[in-house]
């Protein structure tokens, strides 16, 4: 997928996150995009790796910076002591004009992720996205083994929390199937 088409989907995602009352900080966009790509199969082609707060894409981070410089996204400062939210900027509507088919094709998946993942806090997002990463890395491992792996990656996440997060991913995958927004296994 080209960078501009990715930008169109990211702008759509941010708009839907705000509509679903997500905090919509950068971590929310990172983890939502990871779920969109890895669980729902939207082929954004972004490389993710395990980093701070779970799977993280440096290409996505740079894309967000570029979108800010093009005023497709803006940072919305929040009152002390909180971090900022992202919001769409005056340069965003043109992306819908330029990529109507892309937005039409993946719009339902974007809205599903925004509604399901967006309202979570950063701690929950970290656990759930890392659980998804562990499931992708070791699909044949049992839940206990996967939970142990998640705990090894993120020692501040207990094994019990890891088991719970793995279950959340399974439930999310099930709801995505029911909603018909899963594009790939």
């Amino acid at each position: 997928m080209t960078e501009s088409r990715r930008a169109a989907l990211v702008a759509q995602l941010v708009e839907r996150l705000r509509a679903h009352e997500s905090w919509a900080g950068e971590t929310h966009v990172q983890k939502s995009t990871y779920v969109l790509q890895q669980l729902l199969g939207v082929p954004m082609g972004l490389p993710f790796q395990l980093y701070k707060f779970g799977p993280f894409s440096f290409e996505l981070r740079d894309l967000l910076g570029q979108m800010r410089s093009l005023r497709q996204l803006e940072m919305e400062l929040q009152p002390y002591p909180y971090g900022p939210k992202l919001t769409v900027g005056p340069g965003a509507p043109q992306l819908q004009t330029r990529f109507p088919k892309t937005i039409r094709k993946y719009g339902a998946a974007v809205d599903f992720v925004a509604s399901e993942v967006g309202p979570l806090g950063v701690g929950s997002l970290e656990r759930m996205a890392t659980a998804l990463l562990v499931q992708i890395e070791s699909p044949d491992a049992g839940a206990r083994e996967q939970a142990a792996r998640l705990h090894a990656y993120k020692p501040h996440v207990s094994v019990e929390q890891a088991v719970e997060a793995l279950g959340q991913v399974d439930q999310l995958a099930g709801r995505a199937q029911e909603a018909g927004v899963t594009l790939a296994a």
Binding site: G25, F53, G83, G121, V122, E126
Partner: peptide, 17 residues
């Protein structure tokens, strides 16, 4: 610890930075 975010589920990560 990371800077706090707000919202309905305001739980932050505790991963240090």
């Amino acid at each position: 610890p990371p800077a706090p975010t707000g919202g309905t589920d305001a739980e932050s990560s505790v991963e240090p930075t």
